[in-house]
Amino acid sequence: MGKDELEPEARDQIAWIAQRYIDDAPFSQNAPRVEDATKWLDSVDKALLNLVAAYTSSGGGGAKAYAESIMNEHLAEAGYARFSDLLERASAAGRAITCARADISGDGHPRFDERDEWRNMIIRLWKLAQDRGWKPSTNMMLVDAAADDNGAESRTATRFIEFVGILQEALPPGLPRHNKTDAALTKAVAEATRALRQARNENSG
């Protein structure tokens, strides 16, 4: 998959994939963190629970009913529903918070994880390589069967990993990821493409 081997159409596709990452990365980099979002939801949820608990408590008696009737008069003047109706909405809001917390805490939420855009780029490159029959792989290749001085075999990155590394060198500063070592890049690409590789193995099995 060397540079000189790429057909014009393949180069155009790679350029589009890289440009898509360049365009999209700033949005995810500046997105709020999942932890901050869930923390805010937790605080609102706690306030709603306290409000509902205070309203449904057994204390107050006639004083509670009297105070609520006056509140309802003021709410009506302002065009709002009765206080008890607002409490029903608070309960609904609590359920919505539970759903929202589950949504944004899901794996790889695109608006909250700056790694997602990089992973999306890798997945697009992997699919392109598969479609063109390049047989991408993340298995480190054995260079020499003889052990080195430390008793470990020498391995090097696959051509696909090398290709990703070269592509990243052309990206604007701050956008390359996991590029310090071939091993780190290989691990990151393997994690990004795990689902695709599993599907390929299942189909070939």
Rank of each mutant, 00 (worst) to 15 (best):
Q168M: 06
R95W: 02
E169I: 04
L175V: 06
E9Y: 14
G79F: 05
Q198G: 00
G94K: 05
A90L: 02
Y66I: 10
N72Q: 05
E9R: 15
N30F: 07
A157L: 01
Q130W: 02
A145C: 04
A195N: 05
Q198Y: 03
V164M: 00
G94D: 04
H74W: 10
W126A: 00
H178K: 04
E117T: 14
G2F: 10
D42F: 11
A81Q: 08
T138S: 08
P32N: 14
A25W: 13
K127A: 11
W40C: 12
T56K: 10
N120F: 09
S43D: 15
D85G: 02
A157M: 09
T38C: 07
H109G: 01
M71R: 12
D45A: 06
A25K: 11
A65Q: 13
A93M: 11
I104D: 02
A53Y: 06
A96Y: 07
L6A: 13
F83T: 09
G2L: 15
A81P: 03
A183N: 06
R177W: 05
A145W: 12
D45C: 09
R197A: 08
G205M: 01
R132E: 14
S105D: 02
L128N: 02
D42T: 13
T56M: 13
R111A: 13
D149H: 13
T138Y: 09
A90G: 13
R101W: 12
E114C: 09
A92M: 09
A184R: 10
R159A: 15
K3E: 15
A195T: 04
